[in-house]
Structures are given as structure tokens and as C-alpha cells.
Computed example of a mutant assay.
Amino acid sequence: MNEKILVTCSSMPDFEEYCEEIKELWDSHFLTNMGIKHKQLEKELESYLKTENITLFTNGHLALECAIAAFDFEKGSEVITTPFSFSSTTHAIARNGLTPVFCDINSEDFTIDVTKIESLITNKTCAIVPVHVYGN
């Protein structure tokens, strides 16, 4: 049984069209981080979203870590979140000098159990970080 099972197949433009699109990257030597395409995407997103400020991040972890840092919470403060998440959620909290406090999940959609949050709130609680799970 030597059959190939193709799970995904990338949608690719014509090779010449692709080369033309990325040619200016060779001229500038910037692939990301404020390069031509990076700036173009930010500008188009600002227009599409009708906003004046857009910041692109390499990944969701960096975005979450920076968002938490922007609040400038007192070090050692507690952040309620769910343990049923990618480890990056807890990591972003801890990297900001904050203490994660885990709230159990509900058995219906596996998101944070809102009926259990209030009992976890203390005078050290500064935030609640829920996460989406399976589209919920």
C-alpha cells in the first residue's frame, strides 16, 4: 500500500508572479521587522480597521506578553487564568513577574468556569485572562 494521502496542499501563485512580488525584499534585505512588506501590511490593516495604530507581532505569545506588560501591574500580583490552555498563557503572565492563579474549567465547553472565578479573587488579583478553546 504505497498511496500518498495529501492532507494539505499549499495554494501557490505562479512562480514568476511570486518572484515579482518578493523582488523588492532582495533589494532591501528586510524580510520582516519593519521591512517593506511589514510596513505595507500595517498600513493596509490601519485602513481596513479604521485605526491609526497597528503593531504586528511575530506570534501570539509575544503579543500576549506585551499586552500584559502594557498594564504595568505590580510585580507579584495575581492573574486568574485557566490551566486548560497552551503553556504560553501562563508563561506570558510569569514573564511579567506576576503569579498565575488557575481557575478550573467547565465541562460543557472547556473554557474557564465563570462560577468559580469570584472565590479566587483576592486583594492581590490584578487581572483575569480567559482563553478561547475549540472556538468557544
Rank of each mutant, 00 (worst) to 15 (best):
F110H: 12
D109E: 11
D113N: 14
H29D: 10
T125C: 03
A70T: 00
D113P: 10
K116N: 11
A94T: 10
W26R: 06
E3T: 14
L56E: 13
V114N: 13
T58Q: 13
N2A: 06
L6N: 08
T89S: 04
G76F: 13
A70Y: 11
E16P: 00
I112M: 15
I22P: 02
L62R: 11
I36K: 06
C19Y: 11
V129H: 03
V79H: 03
I93D: 03
T122F: 07
E20Q: 06
I121P: 05
N123S: 12
S87G: 15
N106Y: 12
S119F: 07
E65I: 02
C103M: 05
K39C: 10
Y18V: 02
S107K: 13
L120E: 09
I117W: 14
F57K: 00
F102N: 04
T32I: 10
I121R: 03
W26H: 14
Y18F: 15
E118F: 09
S85W: 01
G135Q: 03
E21S: 08
K37T: 09
A92W: 05
T122I: 04
K37W: 12
I105G: 01
L49K: 05
E16D: 15
L41Y: 14
T115N: 15
G97R: 06
F102V: 00
I22D: 11
N2L: 04
E44F: 04
Y18E: 14
P13N: 02
L6G: 02
S85K: 00
G60F: 13
L49Q: 05
E3Q: 13
K4S: 13
N136L: 00
E52D: 11
K43D: 09
I80P: 08
C103A: 09
T58Y: 09
T115V: 04
P100E: 08
K116E: 14
S85M: 02
E20K: 04
L64H: 01
E24I: 12
C19K: 11
E52A: 04
I117M: 06
A127D: 04
T111W: 04
Y134E: 07
M12Y: 12
D14P: 00
N33A: 13
F73S: 00
W26Y: 13
T99F: 12
L25D: 07
G76L: 05
C126E: 06
K124Q: 13
Y18R: 04
E52I: 01
S10V: 06
I5D: 12
D113C: 13
I36S: 12
L41W: 10
I68V: 02
H38E: 08
I5N: 08
S119H: 12
S87L: 11
V131M: 00
L62Y: 11
P100V: 02
D104M: 11
N59R: 03
I54G: 08
E52W: 07
M34W: 10
E21R: 12
I112G: 03
C19E: 09
I68M: 01
H61G: 07
E74G: 02
L98W: 11
E16T: 07
S85V: 01
T125V: 02
D109Q: 05
S10F: 08
N53L: 06
Y18S: 09
F15E: 09
